[in-house]
Amino acid sequence: MDYKTVLTTCTYCGCGCNFYLEVLDGRVIGTIPCKTSPTNEGKLCIKGWNVHEFIQSPSRLTTPLIRKDGRLEEASWDEALEYTATRLKEIAAESGGESLGFLASAKVTNEENYLFQKFARAGAGSNNVDHCARL
């Protein structure tokens, strides 16, 4: 019998609500908002309330996918990063940095988003930076 409540931060949006995931014998069975969190004060939206359902969803991606011959195929992180870096360089060289777009995330930290836009602007030479909430 192993029952734990694990404090964590919602991955859905940038609010950063805190909740406990109930874990029973290694399986996540429930979500309960943290009453003492200054961010959400024991409240959640419908997405947050259901986090425990997607964590173990069999539909969840567990590896990067690369499209090969029109089909998405599983790839290693090294392969995916190598491929992405190579193609970004090729496209920037052929068509200029402005031909690239960068989609950041509401689900990461401010610092990560800062680095991301810096990479887009200073690294790749593109001002086309947007975020996932407008996808």
Partner: peptide
Amino acid sequence: IEGFLGLKEKNGHIAPHLFR
């Protein structure tokens, strides 16, 4: 009892906890 379901101070918060 095999465990006591109560509350515990954890991570600077108060959390539900099964005391074994």
